[in-house]
C-alpha cells in the first residue's frame, strides 16, 4: 500500500466538479482516476486496484443505485456518494444498496477530505477488532462489556449495549435506520423505526454531556445515525 499510490475512482459527469474533486484527491497523495459516465466508471473499476470510489448519484447514463449494486456484486471497495441535500430517499437507497457514506452538495474540500480519510482508514484496518473505545469522558471495553465514565460503571440494558456496540463498530460511518434496526433487532422489525430513535435517545441521555446537542451520537436527518468519537 505504501509503494504504489492509492487509486481513487471519481465518477462524476460534471467536468468542473470532477476537476476540484480530483484536485483534492491528488492533494491527499492519491491517484485520481476520472470517469464521466457510469459505464466508464465500471470499466475503470474492473481494470485494477481501486481504493475508493467517489460517485455522483445524478449520472446521465445509469441510476447511481444500479452502479452500486453492480459494483457490489464483485467488489467491497468503499463508496462515497455525492448527492443534493434534499434527496434523502436517494441517499438511503444508495446506502442500503452498499454505499459507505455520503456528502451533500455543495461541499468544501475540507469536508471531502475528511470523509475520504475516514473511508480509507476504515478500509485499511478492516478485520482488526478493537475492544477498547474512548469518546468524551466515556470508556467502553467491549471485551468485558463495561461502559464507564471516570471509572464509574454506567448500566446499559441489553439493547442499549448492542446498539452501542454496533455504532462503535461502524464509527464515523453513516448507518441508515434500516441497517441499524437490522443489526440490533434483527430482520422483520423495519416497521418499528421508533424503537431505534427512542434507544438512541436513551444512549444520549446516558453517555452524552448534553443530550440535546450530542457530540457523538449524531443524527443524519432523514437518513440515519453516525457515531463519531
Amino acid at each position: 500500500m505504501n509503494a504504489a499510490k492509492m487509486r481513487v475512482l471519481v465518477v462524476e459527469d460534471e467536468p468542473q466538479i470532477r476537476r476540484f474533486i480530483c484536485g483534492a484527491v491528488r492533494k491527499e497523495d492519491c491517484a485520481a482516476i476520472e470517469a464521466g459516465t457510469a459505464r466508464q466508471g465500471l470499466d475503470e473499476a474492473a481494470q485494477g486496484e481501486i481504493g475508493l470510489v467517489i460517485l455522483d448519484l445524478g449520472l446521465p447514463d445509469m441510476e447511481g443505485i444500479d452502479f452500486i449494486r453492480d459494483l457490489r456484486t464483485w467488489s467491497q471497495v468503499p463508496i462515497l456518494i455525492l448527492s443534493a441535500r434534499t434527496a434523502e430517499q436517494d441517499k438511503i437507497a444508495a446506502l442500503d444498496a452498499g454505499a459507505d457514506d455520503y456528502l451533500s452538495k455543495p461541499f468544501g474540500v475540507g469536508e471531502l477530505l475528511a470523509r475520504m480519510r475516514v473511508l480509507l482508514r476504515r478500509h485499511g484496518q478492516s478485520g482488526e477488532a478493537r475492544p477498547q473505545h474512548n469518546f468524551g469522558d466515556i470508556a467502553v471495553d467491549l471485551s468485558r462489556r463495561i461502559v464507564s465514565r471516570g471509572g464509574v460503571e454506567i448500566h446499559l440494558t441489553q439493547i442499549e449495549y448492542r446498539l452501542l456496540a454496533v455504532m462503535l463498530a461502524n464509527e464515523d460511518k453513516v448507518m441508515t435506520h434500516r441497517q441499524l434496526m437490522q443489526e440490533v433487532w434483527g430482520p422483520g422489525h423495519a416497521e418499528q423505526g421508533h424503537y431505534l430513535r427512542v434507544y438512541v435517545g436513551r444512549l444520549r441521555q446516558k453517555l452524552e454531556q448534553d443530550p440535546a446537542q450530542p457530540q457523538h451520537f449524531l443524527t443524519e436527518t432523514g437518513v440515519g445515525y453516525r457515531f463519531q468519537s
Partner: peptide, 16 residues
C-alpha cells in the same frame, strides 16, 4: 445547482 457546487468546491480548493 451544478455550477454553484463547482463554484463552492473550486474556490474552496483555491484557499488550500
Amino acid at each position: 445547482r451544478t455550477p454553484l457546487t463547482s463554484l463552492v468546491g473550486l474556490s474552496d480548493s483555491l484557499t488550500q
